[in-house]
Structure formats: C-alpha cells, structure tokens
C-alpha cells in the first residue's frame, strides 16, 4: 500500500505503543491464568448433571441456589441455602417455602452477581441449564457446581433434579425418599379424580395484550398428565407465547387456569367479550384465576402438589 516513510514514524510509534499494550494485557492474562483455582480435596463423590460430572466433596453445607425450584428442593432435603438468586423479591421466597428464611440475595436469576456468590464461600452451587450454562466455568471456579434443567424442565426432570441435588448433598437416599413420599401424595391425590375424565385442562399465563399457553411438555402440562388429566395443547414446545383471544377460543379448553400477577393483563380485557364467554371452560364455570409465582415460576415438587390440590378443590370440590 503506502511505502514506509520517516514522517510516518509518528503513526508507527503509536501503533507500537498499542501493540505493547496488547502484549501487556496478554502477559497479565497469562499471569492471572496461572493462579490456582479451587481444587477439591479429601473424599469427593461424582455427581452427574446436565453439563457433565462434578466432583463434590463430602456433605456440602453452604449451598447457593440460582433458581426458585432448587430452593424448594433444598428445603425438602432440610438444607437452607446461604444465597439465592431471587430477582430481589424476598417475598417470593417466603411464598415458596411458606416461611421466612435468612439468606443473602445474589441478584437476578438472569445475571446472578458472582462476586456475591463467591463472597458467601459456598461449597455447592446449583445452576440452571438454560440461564447459567455460559457462566458454568466461572461458577465452577468458585465452588463445585451442578447444572439442572429447571427453567424449561418437565415434571420428570424436576423430580430427577431433586435426587441429583440430594446426591450432591451426600445423601442420595434422602432425595429418593422425598420423591417417593411426593409420588405417594400425588397418587393419593390422583386417586380422588374420577375415572374416565375426558375434559381438557390448560394453564395460561396472562400478560399485557396476550396469553402464554402451557402445553403438554411444560411443567404444569406434565403434572396434569401425571394426575391422569389431558392437557389441551399437545406440543413438543413447552410454551406457546403471544396467543390472542382467538387462539385461546380455538384451543377451547374445558378447564382453564389463568395465572396472573397484578391487573391490567389480557384476562381483564377479554373476560367480558362474547368470544371468551363462548369458551367451554367459561360456559361451564371452570375458569380459575391462580397465582403466577406458584403455578408458573416455582416448578417444584411442592408446586406439583399445590397444582393437584387446586384442581381437586376447584374442579372436583375435594379438600385434599
């Protein structure tokens, strides 16, 4: 291109300085790279999870949970987490567990604050496969980390997750016991549902302007199936978002649970229209407004029982 000329020296020296700066950062990065990361010591056991196998030492006591469903599982296993990514909503944790616990908020589930996680000196971190896969390496540098599918998890995956968490806590049997007890509860609840139930069930989350339909592969959908009920939308995608009134009317569920937090959502707009009143569930008085945290956000074993009890109480008038 241009021949080298002496008066270009200015430019060259600048670029040399830039190059030197690049080099310096490279050295700095290399230096920091040589630092030792937390090496597990003593007797450890291998825990298999979504992103591989992690060596977890002994019986971890200081646990950080980055999703709500993990908090519920830990509670059932008798462990109180030291840190929770709670989206700065401690009232949700209280609602989830039915009691106040003392913990440190580590920020949002979307981008948990890793400095805070690290300052809690945890010995186990439980992360979600959708939201935290990108920071798995960094989490692992803080403490042994297991990754489970909570965000998009089906009922079965949530149940398996409880056993995995128990395994990580060093007591797999406790997890299996919790799941067994839960399955007995669910079976007892399912037994109270009349045989030959043909009606279709659906949970929708009402947002401004539209609704999100939870399908057969969603958490609620698979809980319905466990109870012997039929989800109204069969799909391999857990959710169908942006559904208008017409779509809900076309699905025409026989029993409809509408999850809401706050007012001003599509449900308020739609409920007085003739089309809404033409939906089978509305005609037969089978629409139930439920809490969005409980039905859509928490996704734990306890949540499954709450869903089953709500259905029994409202649809079949059985107080379980």
């Amino acid at each position: 291109m241009q021949r080298h000329r002496t008066r270009r020296g200015g430019a060259l020296s600048w670029l040399a300085a830039l190059a030197a700066a690049l080099m310096a950062t490279m050295v700095l990065a290399a230096c920091s790279g040589s630092g030792s990361s937390a090496a597990p010591s003593g007797d450890t056991h291998a825990v298999k999870h979504v992103l591989g196998t992690t060596e977890v030492p002994g019986k971890p006591k200081r646990v950080v949970a980055l999703e709500y469903s993990f908090v519920q599982a830990l509670d059932q296993l008798g462990v109180t987490p030291v840190g929770i990514a709670d989206d700065n909503a401690s009232d949700r944790i209280q609602q989830l567990l039915g009691k106040k616990i003392s913990y440190t908020s580590v920020g949002t589930r979307l981008e948990p604050n890793l400095e805070l996680v690290s300052s809690l000196k945890p010995d186990l971190i439980i992360a979600d496969s959708t939201r935290h896969a990108k920071i798995y390496k960094q989490l692992s540098a803080i403490a042994p980390t297991i990754v489970l599918n909570s965000w998009e998890g089906s009922y079965q995956e949530i149940k398996d997750g409880v056993v995995t968490i128990a395994d990580a806590l060093g007591d797999r049997a406790a997890g299996e016991a919790v799941v067994r007890k839960h399955e007995e509860t669910m079976a007892a609840l399912a037994a109270q549902i009349p045989k030959g139930e043909k009606r279709t069930f659906m949970l929708t989350v009402s947002t401004p302007d539209s609704m999100t339909l939870h399908t057969s592969t969603s958490f609620t959908g698979s809980v319905f199936q466990t109870l012997g009920l039929t989800p109204a939308v069969q799909s391999d995608k857990p959710q169908e978002s942006g559904a208008g009134l017409e779509r809900v009317a076309a699905v025409n569920p026989d029993v409809l649970l509408v999850a809401i937090d706050g007012s001003g959502t599509a449900y308020d707009q739609w409920k007085d229209t003739a089309t809404w009143k033409g939906i089978s569930a509305v005609k037969n008085n089978q629409v139930y407004v439920v809490d969005r945290n409980q039905f859509s956000r928490f996704r734990g074993l306890g949540t499954a029982e709450v869903i089953a009890k709500t259905v029994l109480k409202n649809v079949y008038h059985v107080d379980a």
Partner: peptide, 24 residues
Amino acid sequence: LIMSNTTQDMVFWLAGSVTGADWS
C-alpha cells in the same frame, strides 16, 4: 425491561403488535 424481569411479557408489544386489539 431487564430490571423489572418483564422481557418475556413485553417481547410482542416491543416489536409492535395488534394481537391484543379490541374495541377499547
């Protein structure tokens, strides 16, 4: 949206949508 954790709820509106049309 990120601060209030409402992204999922607002994705449609944000793109510009007439799905929620009604007489009001």
